[in-house]
Design a protein around this nucleic acid. Sequence first.
DNA 1: GAGGTTAGTGACAGCCGCTGACACTTGACA
DNA 2: TGTCAAGTGTCAGCGGCTGTCACTAACCTC
Lengths: 236, 236
Amino acid sequence: METASRPGLRERKKQRTRDALVRAALELFTANGYERTTVDEIVEAVDVSQRTFFRYFAGKEEAAFAVQTTVEAHFLEAVRRRPPHEAPSQALRQAVLANWDTIGETIESVVPIELHLRTFRLIESTPALLAVHLRRQEGLEEQLAQTIAEREGVDVDADPRPRVVVALFGGVMRLAGRAWGAGEDFSVAAMRELTTSYLDQMGPALATDWRTRDGEGSGRDGGHGRSGGDGRGDTE
Amino acid sequence: METASRPGLRERKKQRTRDALVRAALELFTANGYERTTVDEIVEAVDVSQRTFFRYFAGKEEAAFAVQTTVEAHFLEAVRRRPPHEAPSQALRQAVLANWDTIGETIESVVPIELHLRTFRLIESTPALLAVHLRRQEGLEEQLAQTIAEREGVDVDADPRPRVVVALFGGVMRLAGRAWGAGEDFSVAAMRELTTSYLDQMGPALATDWRTRDGEGSGRDGGHGRSGGDGRGDTE
DNA sequence: GAGGTTAGTGACAGCCGCTGACACTTGACA
DNA sequence: TGTCAAGTGTCAGCGGCTGTCACTAACCTC
């Protein structure tokens, strides 16, 4: 129970152990698969007892999401910092875009960014982890809804719009994330493009008639029309 | 008289065992909680071996979602049956509304509908089950996107709109489901109202300024739970 | 209907995730 | 330097889940 100002040796040691566990876990998960990695293997790599692992993490899953937690907090803070004159949907959009520029350093302070990217793809492709990921995102969306409601001065329980706008936004961002992980360009630039591309599709997708050009610029065709800025890759 | 369509004794016995397991599992889950219910308790209630349980279900979770699977298939089929002239967002809306009328019988053929409702609330309030629920919903959304793309004659991988419209729809439906489970009126009428109410908030939530009435066609509305006109009530 | 085939099951052993209990080590602080 | 508490290791044990194998019962053929 130290003051938050100075870490102290004990605290530093704890942090080091925790970081080592996260790194070892992510390394092993991405190398051999999540299910095929046992907790015993992780603790052996760090040379602590299995009991210690479960004192740091509620479960094997939690170790896999350690970095995600940091990223999410970073994004939530970015939304809170948006100027209050922005509309809710705009604030969310700008926050996520601005976030891509600074998120790198935040990640790198914990693990190599390349390891984080591999972890992200692992999560998307591992059913058990994907499930947890989606639940966590719902939790984040609830916090976002509270934030938006506060910004606009409405009651989050009486007015459905905060949760609705966040749910719409979250749904589209999931698509962008999925497309990013499934593609081959893992640069920040690619993610920015996918983000704006998908967000810009919200209007057209809700249009009453997809066959006339009342929303999408490139129009459509029956076959493999490459539409607009949608730089999606394969389907695997 | 045994017709060719008749399952056969072996098959019928299997179905009976499976149904018994589902009922016992849901009964125990809702009565004592998901985590606090052991597989041994379930198999004891049906008087089979634990090994048999895991031959029917990949895990304890799968038993909890047995009825949900039926409901989802039912809804997917309802979307496929919508007249092709409807816009995608309309087809989804009408399908879910029409679905509430017939879903009761579908459920009742497996377990008492009241047990299903308790199970639904259990899922929403149990983190482990909620995570699986969300992942399953994403799977359903992918199928919906394929269906929509087919209806509109577009390539689901080249045109982002099918997945976008489904993601928007799915996100809002999750909110409606959550509100339903959290409320106190578990009637079908209540769910219909919540559904239309939330769907109608999509436009207003995306409006640039929540403080003036410039939403997409519908004026803004301060509280939810409002009733009355969903406007386009043709359920066919 | 006798006999062979196969699907379904039970019994057993064992791995892995996870937890409680308790004793021991070590940093913190007087 | 001694006391205290945080952090850790060890051990025992439960519950979810799987592989194996022998056994039973439904199916199929003659």
